[in-house]
Design a protein around this nucleic acid. Structure first.
Lengths: 248, 248
DNA sequence: ATCCCAGCGACTGTATGCTAGAAACCGAGG
DNA sequence: CCTCGGTTTCTAGCATACAGTCGCTGGGAT
């Protein structure tokens, strides 16, 4: 796999080069995926040996992956005991959503300030993709398109630091939010439409407000769903572990 | 953070236990300190062996420390080549300060919403410490007191996620800002005073605005200083490496 | 002289070895 | 039956060992 592309080192406008992807990165993504899909349950003890064997690598890359996942909030690292899948609490989810609202609103505000016809056109394209996903009732597609749209708006803001933070917060929001992703579909994309129009018009204040309302509405939806789930007898899995958020 | 739960089983309100501090943490802090103090220059290649020998540990803890420092933005990690001290650009510094403004303003707003006499009293104590440091012309003390005050306000906000992000951003800001830390002293603490009064009064909007203006002023100061430094012939060290920020 | 390439040294990425300490288990005593 | 103390097992943390890669250097061909 080390075939150096004959593309040439000349006018190579390519990235540094096509890397076989560092093993630790692969492992990180893989474990994160296991957490998101629920294969690894909240609170579960992640034993390095097991994961290493399971993924066919040594403990070292697994360790590094766990460290990274820790700094991104996916796992808790108890000194001397190892890594445990982070157990989200209702409080934390709320704070996460509140913070997300703040960051996303700012990114929309800045995006409106930097709007150009070409960039706005890209937003519309992503909007179209999203609406198609809604029409096709394609859950995964909706989530992906939603992420892509928000990401594009963030990039338009021109603030990379802000972007990093949003990426950090969003990935976790998406995890918590996953069980109820379906509930907000069509309406969200209607809101997107108005938001894009406002950004195109360069109305910074309104763009920020719209995004705030948009994400705030998502937050409300989340709360309603959480309350519903909490009111019910609580659905546990075979091991008796609670599947929903802890109410603490 | 410390749980306020009145429950308290037994008198064991102590922390989990006094740990000998994981080695990787010590190493992380140490390297971060070397970067902050300039012992390690921006762009410098951090060789694991060297650092390990220098700190009297093996490569393993050093590796883990570098990974963490990477995720916190202190070093860049080029696959196959290793770690390099991050070189801040003027753009990035500006984005960092802008983001900081956003986050700090929100924390002040929330702090005002959650203000209690006891908490406000703690703020005044920190304010006193800071003013003493100013009076004594104690640079390090000023920086520390400033950090402590902002941290306390953040904790009052009750949003831990927000707190983590602020911590992330602030430490880097402090690095970039270090060369010009002296310039803002007395006036900053006057602004703090007004801010605390507003928080005590529970005026959320005004608290947010004040904090925004406060950090925004810091940002302006930074720009002025950066411009001054940029205008001059540029001070280089013995190795011919630029000491200031890159203008790119 | 310039360019290419082979060989070499240095450093990262990955794997394995070793040890101190925590959790779980078990059995004896109250 | 519950409690307590010792023992055993398991695991993280750190150290060390091995292998792949990158960049550099020096010699030879053009």
């Amino acid at each position: 796999m080390s075939e150096m592309s004959p593309v040439g080192r000349r006018a190579s406008r390519r990235k540094p080069l096509e890397r076989p992807a560092p093993l630790r990165q692969v492992v990180t993504d893989e474990i994160a995926d296991m957490i998101i899909t629920g294969e690894l349950q909240p609170g579960e003890h992640l034993v390095e040996q097991e994961l290493a064997a399971q993924l066919g690598v040594s403990r070292q890359p697994v360790r590094e992956a766990l460290q990274r996942l820790h700094s991104e909030g996916w796992v808790d690292l108890r000194p001397g005991l190892g890594a445990f899948v982070h157990t989200p609490t209702a409080d934390e989810a709320d704070q996460l959503l509140a913070t997300r609202t703040l960051l996303e609103a700012e990114s929309a505000r800045l995006a409106a300030a930097n709007a150009t016809p070409a960039l706005v056109e890209q937003l519309w394209e992503l909007q179209a993709v999203g609406e198609q996903a809604v029409a096709a009732d394609d859950d995964a597609g909706m989530v992906a398109a939603n992420a892509a749209l928000h990401r594009q708006i963030m990039e338009m803001s021109g603030n990379k630091v802000l972007g990093e933070l949003i990426a950090l917060v969003d990935s976790r929001v998406r995890w918590y939010y996953r069980p109820i992703a379906r509930s907000r579909g069509r309406e969200a994309w209607d809101e997107h439409r108005e938001l894009i129009e406002t950004i195109a018009g360069g109305n910074t204040r309104k763009a920020g407000d719209l995004m705030r309302k948009h994400t705030e509405r998502t937050r409300k939806t989340y709360h309603v769903r959480a309350a519903e789930a909490g009111a019910r007898p609580a659905q546990n899995d075979a091991d008796g572990r609670a599947q929903g958020l802890e109410t603490a």
